[in-house]
């Protein structure tokens, strides 16, 4: 079973656009990442720039609205994610529990949809999409 662990760092909402995590935080996180890798469960991971360097795009009254970060109204913003392959939801939670998150930070554990979970009509609707992760045709 594949899960995404989404990290919601509390201090990320108002972090400066060029803010970087401390060396100590990175070192701790790398140790956690390494433990995921050594256990053979880590499939992918990424960390994100702060939202103040990002933008939010929405449709308001039929028009595209773009709001530059930081987002004053946002209570939680994503700071990064891991994708892990584990035997159960409990195991995903156990891994998230081991992550060295500081006080106030949150990790959300969500199962990743697999194509086979979709009924045929939904799969049909997804047809023709060339997944970018697939290798280029040789």
């Amino acid at each position: 079973m594949r899960f995404m662990m989404l990290m919601f760092p509390a201090d990320q909402c108002n972090a400066a656009p060029d803010a970087l995590p401390s060396a100590e935080a990175v070192e701790q996180m790398m140790r956690f990442n390494k433990s995921l890798q050594e256990a053979g469960v880590l499939l992918a991971l990424d960390g994100l720039h702060p939202p103040s360097a990002g933008a939010r795009v929405s449709i308001v009254d039929g028009k595209v609205r773009v709001v530059d970060g930081p987002f004053a109204e946002a209570k939680e913003v994503v700071g990064g994610y891991w994708i892990i392959d584990v035997g159960s939801r409990d195991e995903a939670i156990a891994w998230a529990s081991r992550c060295p998150i500081g006080a106030g930070n949150t990790i959300e554990v969500r199962q990743v949809f697999e194509m086979t979970e979709f009924p045929p009509e939904l799969r049909k609707a997804a047809e023709g999409f060339d997944d970018p992760r697939r290798p280029a045709a040789s």
């Binding site: 594949r2 499939l43 992918a44 994708i83 697999e114 194509m115 086979t116 799969r123 997804a126 047809e127 999409f129 997944d131 970018p132 992760r133 697939r134 290798p135």
Partner: peptide, 15 residues
């Protein structure tokens, strides 16, 4: 086989 069911993440990792 329906090749759209092949798992692209595993293919990528395998390659």
């Amino acid at each position: 086989q329906d090749r759209s069911l092949w798992d692209p993440l595993l293919i990528r990792r395998g390659l």
